[in-house]
Amino acid sequence: MNGKEVFRFACRAVPQSIESALEKAGLSGSSIDWLLLHQANQRIIDAVASRLEVPSERVISNLANYGNTSAASIPLALDEAVRTGKVQPGHIIAAAGFGAGLTWGSAIMRWG
């Protein structure tokens, strides 16, 4: 695995994917209450947040506590954010996963 290429790929593809999902949902980037990314690397999380102009206080990250929990990272981080009261009903969450084979996907959710 070429770490530099994975970093570049994630920092390019993930913001584009989230912007496309927002457009399809009829929302703008300013509508995002929370940014929730695959918890693989804090530098990637920070870079994507910066490119999307999402302030760090609106980024869900538990990477420092648990490390990369692979495919479970988004649901685990979301569960923790809900249990601690960060995520509230009606909040808009922009989520994106990326990984094996340089694949990616995004979803925009309104928390119920």
Rank of each mutant, 00 (worst) to 15 (best):
K24P: 07
D79P: 00
G112W: 10
R51N: 12
R110Y: 08
G112H: 13
R58T: 03
E57Y: 12
S20N: 12
V82I: 15
L63I: 05
G90K: 12
N41E: 09
S61I: 02
Q39V: 00
E53I: 04
R51L: 10
L102C: 05
N41C: 08
E53G: 10
I44S: 02
S73D: 07
L36P: 00
E53H: 14
L36W: 09
A71S: 14
P89V: 10
G67W: 03
I18S: 04
T103I: 03
Q42V: 05
L36E: 04
I45W: 04
A64E: 14
Y66Q: 05
E19K: 09
S70H: 06
R110P: 00
R8Y: 03
V59C: 13
V82L: 14
Q88E: 13
A25F: 06
G85M: 08
A77P: 00
R83E: 15
V48K: 05
P15N: 03
I93C: 08
V87T: 00
I108L: 10
S30H: 07
I93H: 06
L102N: 08
P89N: 13
P15Y: 02
G101A: 05
S50G: 14
N41M: 04
I92V: 15
I32C: 12
K4T: 14
I60R: 10
R51M: 09
W104G: 01
G112M: 11
F7L: 13
G26H: 04
E80W: 11
S73P: 10
W111P: 01
A25N: 09
E80S: 12
R83C: 10
G99T: 03
G90T: 08
S20E: 15
W104A: 02
F98K: 00
H38N: 04
I44L: 07
R110H: 07
A21N: 03
M109E: 05
L22K: 00
I92H: 11
T84D: 15
R12P: 03
I32D: 07
S17M: 11
G90M: 14
L35Y: 10
F7E: 04
A49D: 07
G97L: 01
I32Q: 07
S31P: 07
S61K: 06
P89Y: 13
R83Y: 09
N2E: 13
I32P: 07
T84Y: 12
N65W: 11
L37V: 02
S73F: 08
N65L: 15
L63P: 02
S20I: 01
A100C: 08
M109S: 06
I45Y: 09
